[in-house]
């Protein structure tokens, strides 16, 4: 009897492992078939590599001001030229990848757990809890996201940390709604009833058995939102409410170059181009992730 269950366990583990392998293989095939997603993923991997190796790639110190070298056009010495304080724009763009990625990751790390907790609580308990939490999220959804983020950034004071908080404040309600909808869909399933009858606490059910069911749709949503998060951060930087000088933040750099737009076009346009490429990469990847995790696509 005892050995039998042990063998079964090993068999089960083996089968589970096989299934998981199959899943990853299918995902890979779907990924390869979607050319746009390959492009998007490549952009994001490059972005990660650039951010990781920024000090190696940068040809100059991004903060070094050499006033005699101000507003130089792009050359072999300065790939993207120099800005009004004689700083090397290429090095600043490379280091800016770190700033942008940090903002995007931290916003994701703050807003998704908050949304998840609130959404699961609302969906699981229902009734008054649901009503209060969802009205709360309605209030935040009543503002256009950028306006809410700007208002909070202005109120908290300019700076990268506050910009991150402000964007997270504007973002959590959509995750809460999604998590609530997913929770409602699984809450009354038989397996939840079985676990409950076995004596699992509410907390255990929510953390161990409901939250995992919400994760895949939250991940899809988050990957689709990444581009918007970066655009919002850049917009805050551009308005002077996000990262502050001398931080090499892309939106801020676009704003810095506005005065020299006519004669020194590179100061403004090249950092902006970086934003465009990265946001495009995230959007392509997000679309692709949605397609890959979509069960209808998998069957075909």
């Amino acid at each position: 009897m005892n050995t039998e269950t042990q063998i079964d366990k090993r068999l089960a583990r083996n089968q589970r492992w096989k299934a998981r392998q199959r899943y990853f293989k299918d995902s890979y095939t779907l990924w390869r078939r979607n050319h746009l997603m390959v492009v998007g993923t490549t952009i994001i991997i490059l972005l990660l590599l650039i951010a990781l190796s920024a000090p190696l790639l940068a040809t100059h110190n991004p903060l070094d001001q050499i006033l005699s070298d101000r507003l130089l056009p792009p050359t072999w010495e300065h790939f993207f030229g120099t800005d009004s304080l004689g700083r090397d724009i290429f090095s600043r763009v490379v280091h800016g990848a770190r700033v942008t990625l940090t903002i995007a990751l931290l916003v994701a790390l703050i807003s998704t757990p908050v949304g998840l907790i609130i959404g699961v609580l609302a969906g699981y308990f229902g009734g008054a809890v649901d009503e209060i939490l969802m009205r709360l999220s309605d209030v935040f959804l009543a503002f256009p996201k950028l306006i809410l983020a700007i208002a909070f950034a202005a109120a908290l004071g300019p700076g990268v940390e506050n910009a991150i908080i402000a964007i997270a404040v504007a973002n959590w309600p959509s995750y809460a709604r999604l998590a609530r909808a997913e929770t409602l869909a699984v809450r009354d399933n038989d397996y939840i009833q079985v676990i409950r009858s076995m004596g699992a606490s509410n907390l255990r059910i929510m953390v161990g058995h409901i939250t995992p069911m919400c994760l895949s749709s939250i991940i899809v949503r988050l990957s689709l939102d990444m581009g918007t998060i970066i655009l919002t951060a850049a917009g805050l930087g551009f308005l002077g409410l996000g990262a502050q000088p001398p931080t090499p933040e892309w939106g801020l750099m676009v704003s810095d170059g506005r005065l020299y737009l006519v004669d020194q076009w590179w100061v403004s346009t090249l950092p902006g181009f970086a934003i465009l490429i990265v946001v495009m990469g995230f959007n392509l990847m997000g679309d692709g992730i949605r397609d890959i995790l979509d069960p209808h696509q998998r069957q075909s």
Binding site: A234, F238, G251, S255, R258, L276, V279, N283, L284
Partner: peptide, 18 residues
């Protein structure tokens, strides 16, 4: 569509002005 959703509005404005 892809460019439309990925474009930083403030940057496009500057480029068009330029």
């Amino acid at each position: 569509s892809l460019i439309g959703v990925s474009m930083p509005v403030f940057w496009l404005g500057l480029v068009f002005l330029l």
